[in-house]
């Protein structure tokens, strides 16, 4: 039995401690946000926040999480009450198939948590680990820019 803090709530899970956080979130806690994309820490579809840092949940064992706070896209906001970043993605229609988008949101949120007004170059650099295959990059960048507000 492991106790996790997920999206501000304490959750008990019985998965074995070596289970990557991705499968715990999806299969034990029923959270859809983090996606299996590669299981190798190479594509970012599984990105979640661990104590505000963006991490690949597919290579983060349950045993490594400890007391650190897990935040998934469900923790940002809901379809009815979106967070500013989610709203910016909606306003820019920044998705095609959308499979990468929850990971994009969580990586972008980690940037905005650390630096509320990043430069365009910083945004590109920060988003580098996450892959999008549909080619929605321009809209994703625009959405993050919109959420961050115009450059000072």
């Amino acid at each position: 039995m492991t106790i996790l803090s997920v999206n501000g709530k304490s959750r008990q899970v019985t998965a074995s401690p070596d289970t990557p956080l991705l499968y715990v979130l999806r299969d034990d806690l029923g959270l859809n946000g983090a996606k299996y994309g590669c299981g190798l820490g190479q594509c970012g579809a599984c990105t979640v926040q661990l104590d505000r840092m963006a991490v690949f949940s597919c290579v983060t064992p349950l045993a490594a999480v400890g007391t650190r706070a897990v935040r998934t896209v469900e923790g940002l906001g809901s379809a009815e009450a979106m967070s500013p970043l989610q709203r910016a993605f909606a306003e820019e229609q920044a998705a095609q198939c959308g499979y990468c988008i929850a990971g994009m949101l969580m990586r972008a949120q980690a940037l905005l948590d650390a630096n509320p007004s990043p430069s365009d170059a910083q945004i590109r650099q920060h988003m580098q680990p996450n892959l999008c295959r549909c080619g929605t990059h321009i809209r994703i960048l625009r959405a993050i820019r919109r959420a961050a507000g115009p450059l000072a």
């Binding site: 959270l31 859809n32 946000g33 299996y36 998934t72 469900e74 379809a79 998705a95 929850a102 949101l105």
Partner: peptide, 23 residues
């Protein structure tokens, strides 16, 4: 008109959007 896509809100919020999410 630029109607907002009907499938996007679920994709931004962790709603069930994919066959992968079927349980």
């Amino acid at each position: 008109r630029n109607l907002p896509r009907v499938d996007i809100p679920a994709k931004l919020t962790g709603g069930a959007a994919y066959v992968q999410d079927l349980r």
